[in-house]
Design a protein around this nucleic acid. Sequence first.
RNA 1: GGCGGCUUAGCCAAGUGGUAAGGCGACGGUCUGCAAAACCGUUAUUCGGCGGUUCAAAUCCGCCAGCCGCCUCCA
Length: 484
Amino acid sequence: MGLKIYNTLTRKKEPFVPVNPGKVGMYVCGVTVYDMCHIGHARSVVLFDVIYRYLLKSGLDVTYIRNFTDIDDKIINRATQLGEDWKHLAERFVKEFHFDMDALGVKRPSIEPKATDHIQDIISLISALIDTGHAYEADGDVMFSVTSFSTYGKLSGKKTEDLVSGARVEVDEKKKDPLDFALWKAAKIGEPFWNSPWGPGRPGWHIECSAMSMRYLGPTFDIHGGGADLTFPHHENEIAQSEGATGEPFAKYWIHNGFVNIRSEKMSKSLGNVLNIRDILKETHPEALRLFLLSSHYRSPLDFNDTSIREASVGLERLYAACASLEEIEEAAGRLSSLPVELSDLDSRFREAMDDDFNTPKGLAIMFEASRAINRIHTESGGDKDKIPAPDLLRKAGNELAGWARDVFGILNENPQDFLEKTRRSGTDELGITEDQIRQLLDERSEARKTRNFKLADEIRDKLLEKGILIEDGPEGSTWRVKQ
RNA sequence: GGCGGCUUAGCCAAGUGGUAAGGCGACGGUCUGCAAAACCGUUAUUCGGCGGUUCAAAUCCGCCAGCCGCCUCCA
């Protein structure tokens, strides 16, 4: 395959060559389980879900690891705040994470390891770092010595001198050098702890990912991913710890996704504009949210606002409408022996788009072009069998299209008729009119139209429109839908 | 202060050397009693500005302007 991936490590698009032919090891930093997941988490999780799905579709044997950080300062603080056992709190938010991600149609990774299940791996790794001279014990803590690792900064492009002069580094007497970071933290009174050669304590933030990735994928593996903010210091530190301990190269390709802004502002707790996935899904179809998240390139910033999410919803409906049209023209038993270009070679065109550093916007463009071609056949053939491609041709195109939409993008999983019907009447409850009343008014209007009383017919239509109901007259009578 | 990125139509957004995908919106047309939906057509002689390299640049180089991210927990 001709997959190219933009590698943060080299700042270039590079051909993807797996360490072991036919196999892929992929590790993505998951969430710290102390709160509900927001739209930013959704972007990262959906992106790597699509990457995982694409690698699987390419016939690769993928081992996909996504961890949970279930012991950390934030968890301890939140637990104290709520008067809840920290372990209970962590488990609760693991469940919430799964609830949201299942709703978003995210495939479960091969393994979802938790930091607390890997304390022994972590301790072994720290011991190895002490043995190799990359770490030192300091009063119950263990610190990583940044200056001991000569290539420190290679991922984020930082020089250690610049970092020191940046002067934003935390001062800590236990550190020999201000840049050093904790591998193991001695437990304070009342804090959760595990016993270790250095006394009771818990792992630092970065070490768990080194320990768990190497545990499941070996010292060298293919892809390591996460949000752009994790590049430094988290991933930089992971490299230092892992390569320092093993002496072998760590992850080969580093993939980082851009941030989601909310109405052009950075999403942050202080601005109070953090959007939870749970809340968004109350008003937005999960597939529309996926479509939105995949509508721009993964490394670009993405702005969440009323327009962008509405466009995604409209777009999803358009794709489903095309699916429904396709079913109809398939049943028409056409005799045309060729397909329009927009419906030809779909597999190779989708592959070309995804091979180019997972260009999902391009992939979506192919779907929209195909939809337009389907609609065109639908309306312009006028039922003329000589203008409709033969069913087997249409079926092939439809299968390719649906295959990519479902298997890779994770959309169009519903029955088109059911989806459209559901969308048509979604939100009726809030309009102050029942479906029976609508039906009744529609019947009245049909009568009026039969007798060519268009004044009354239009009055009824306007009245319904005021309520938010849109009427569509078709050859088989009138239908209604809730105006979006 | 250090490092990195971005700037493409009214809006969103692909495109990294060969002459501007796609979506939303708007306008005109077909259809309709009129609409709606759907389809067709139009909507960037041009890619922040100024120079340079080249037969050829949105794409490469330089300078300038504006915006953003990271350097501290953060997807």
